[in-house]
Simulated assay, not measured.
Amino acid sequence: MAVNGGRVPSGPRELGRSGVRVPPLGLGCAPLANLYQAVPEERALDTVRAAFDTGLTYMDTAPHYGVGLSEERLGRVLAGRDRAGYTLSTKVGRRLRPRAPDRVREWDFTRDGIRASLESSLERLGVDAVDIAYLHDPEDHVREVHETGFAALAELKREKLVKAIGFGMNHSDLLARFVADFDVDVVLCAGRWTLLERTAFDDLLPVCERRGTSVVVGGVYNSGLLADPAPGARYDYRQAPPELLARARRLAEVCAEFQVPLRAAALRFPFGHPAVAAAVVGCASPAEVRDNAELFAHDIPGELWQALVRRGLLDDDIPLPV
């Protein structure tokens, strides 16, 4: 296995024309807040430290993750670090309100709600500004996005409280509509542009390329199916259907012929499209961070992608990674 010392290869890429640059692999911080499994405090902090050590210096979080816990834990590691040494994104649209014994989430796409949400995030993160702010999962709030939500986000950018703005969700068709309608720097699209899923290639990626909007890809493992295609594996947050499980196993078999782990291929695949600037992977331990960094640096021969096309596992119109 050829790896680049466990560090992420290639240089940072600009998001749209925002001036914000991100490394190609970033840390998704939802697992820091006990997503799927409990993560002790010190392990969560060590996970973020490992991300800095391995070059995953783009970190994506949200108030929604653990009702603020992800931002709080991330902020503890960011304290005292050079602000120019990392890129940070959070999300707005779900505002946290105090309610004994903790906090609750409330949808709020008003100007005041979005500003209050960002201000609270800045307090939890311990920073004066974030680089990127996404409107989070607004699929059921399209009218509010058009009436108040995006204008509020654009105002924050004009005031330099954020440098780049966009949307984060797993509905690529709606993301495509938003990119067409608004001046969007970047979108975070989860699960729709993977070895198993080409939806974003048909609707979102063409309009992003045309408009100069960058794409950050999340969910490259499709909730776990492309990480370990074993019976009971999840796809889109629920148990994978048999036909997708069978296809994922065929993908793994072809990758094994080229001595490439399926996860390495899954991480690299989205970068075949020129609109893709980065991928973020959720990690719940330092070992997972290091593992993903090594997988991303794995030497993948071009013949693998061609073999996947020949065997009908990738469509022949799909752009393949170099």
Rank of each mutant, 00 (worst) to 15 (best):
P138K: 10
G66L: 01
R268D: 08
Y65G: 09
H136Y: 04
F296V: 04
D203R: 13
M1D: 09
W107Y: 15
L156E: 07
L45M: 07
V215W: 02
L251S: 05
G212R: 02
E42T: 11
E288H: 13
R211C: 01
C255Y: 06
C283V: 10
K160R: 14
D228N: 12
I318F: 10
A164F: 02
R311C: 09
D102C: 11
R143F: 09
L15G: 00
L244F: 00
G282I: 08
R111D: 05
V8I: 11
A79L: 11
I165S: 09
S121M: 00
D53E: 15
L74E: 06
Y58R: 07
G28S: 04
G149W: 13
E197L: 02
F109Y: 06
K91W: 07
R13V: 14
A230E: 14
F178D: 01
E147M: 11
P229D: 06
H273K: 00
D203H: 14
V145N: 01
V48I: 05
P261Y: 09
L88Q: 03
F269T: 05
G168F: 08
A266L: 03
A284E: 08
R94K: 13
D236G: 14
D112F: 02
E139Y: 11
L118W: 04
S172D: 10
Y58N: 12
V130Q: 08
F201L: 14
R143N: 12
D202V: 05
G166K: 04
E14H: 04
D82V: 02
N34Q: 08
L45E: 07
R7T: 12
A240I: 03
P206H: 00
Y221R: 04
D202R: 15
C208M: 03
G6Y: 00
D291W: 14
R210E: 11
K91V: 02
L15Q: 05
